[in-house]
Design a protein around this nucleic acid. Structure first.
Lengths: 193, 193
DNA sequence: ACCTGAACACCGTTCAAGT
DNA sequence: ACCTGAACACCGTTCAAGT
């Protein structure tokens, strides 16, 4: 029988991706193998290759999709400092939900390099609010993203104190550093309200 | 014959570590396997396990040793801003020489958690110069290390522009952000000279 | 004490074959 | 078009055996 050792539906790329992401959430990057994934889907390992070029391509697709779905704070008209904080918190929360996925992204930053991603739109809007010039926008965004991802990774890897209070204080320190760094960034930083 | 398919010496932990680091430098984390390492050393794969508990333990030892050997800038009496910059540059240079090793460290931050490491000594000295209080020292150090490692990783992974000039400007932006972040950190930042 | 070969339980992926 | 089994070239590691 070649038709289906499976239940009903004939294996879609969406089902493959969501199951793979779940395996990563549960068991880390090491917890995802093509063979385990196939077993989880009740399918022959080789069937996966009909929907996906390689494990690497699958991981790239999982990460890009999940990153695109990260909930982002709306433009609520509050000062840029508050909005930057909200954005960093959103990233932090999503990374805590999918630590293995974001670890993989950190090691393969090209996945998140597409400047049409909403993440970049929101960050650029906030940086403009903070008074960053168009010329500096791209560079400043890259550096801040690297800072935040470095911090969030250290945090979810357990490099920083584990108790709720310690995390909050570390987070405050990180945001504080970035905000004052931006404010001292040359031209008058915008002071809304 | 069980005595030696090898040349002369009987396989030391130092030789194992330095060869393994070279393999990582040449072929990335994926370029290091216990079997390739053994082949490189003209030895049976299983012989390695007489000097090392596991691949994970070997990697931890390689990273800890290499991190401890990272050249650090001396206390040259210059302002803390210049010294912070010099420290970040030293880290950047070392990471460029051993990118796979530092990538592994970033994913296993406990390797670099030992506060007796010279890296932390130097960073704490600079932060004290910058006016950071003892109470904030540990936390601020953690956050800055996370920032710098995040930035350096993004850079060596090619997430930032590749040309020499672009890298320099990104580096300037990163240092600028950190310095002004620290300077705005509350109490009067020290202004030497 | 140090090294080895065979074996085990895994990987990702190719390829020819099935319906 | 979609799925499969067998096979290939790899992994890390255990274990009993050699000197």
């Amino acid at each position: 029988m070649a038709v289906s050792a499976r239940r009903g539906a004939p294996l879609s790329i969406e089902e493959i991706c969501s199951t793979a992401l779940r395996l990563m959430d549960e068991g880390g990057v090491a917890g995802l193998s093509m063979r385990k994934l196939a077993a989880e889907l009740n399918v022959n390992p080789m069937s996966l290759y009909h929907h996906v070029d390689s494990k690497e391509a699958l991981l790239a697709q999982i990460c890009a999709t999940a990153a695109e779905r990260m909930p982002l704070p709306p433009d609520d008209g509050t000062p840029w400092q508050a909005q930057l904080r909200a954005l960093a918190l959103a990233y932090h929360r999503h990374a805590r939900e999918h630590p293995a996925m974001w670890t993989y992204v950190q090691n393969h930053p090209e996945i998140v390099a597409d400047r049409r991603m909403k993440l970049w739109e929101v960050l650029y809007r906030i940086l403009r609010l903070a008074g960053v010039t168009e010329e500096e926008l791209h560079r400043t965004g890259d550096v801040l993203y690297a800072f935040v991802s470095g911090f969030v990774m250290a945090e979810i890897r357990g490099h920083l104190p584990a108790d709720r209070e310690g995390i909050d204080r570390d987070f405050d320190t990180a945001i504080h550093l970035m905000i004052h760094g931006l404010a001292g960034f040359g031209r008058q930083a915008a002071h809304p309200d």
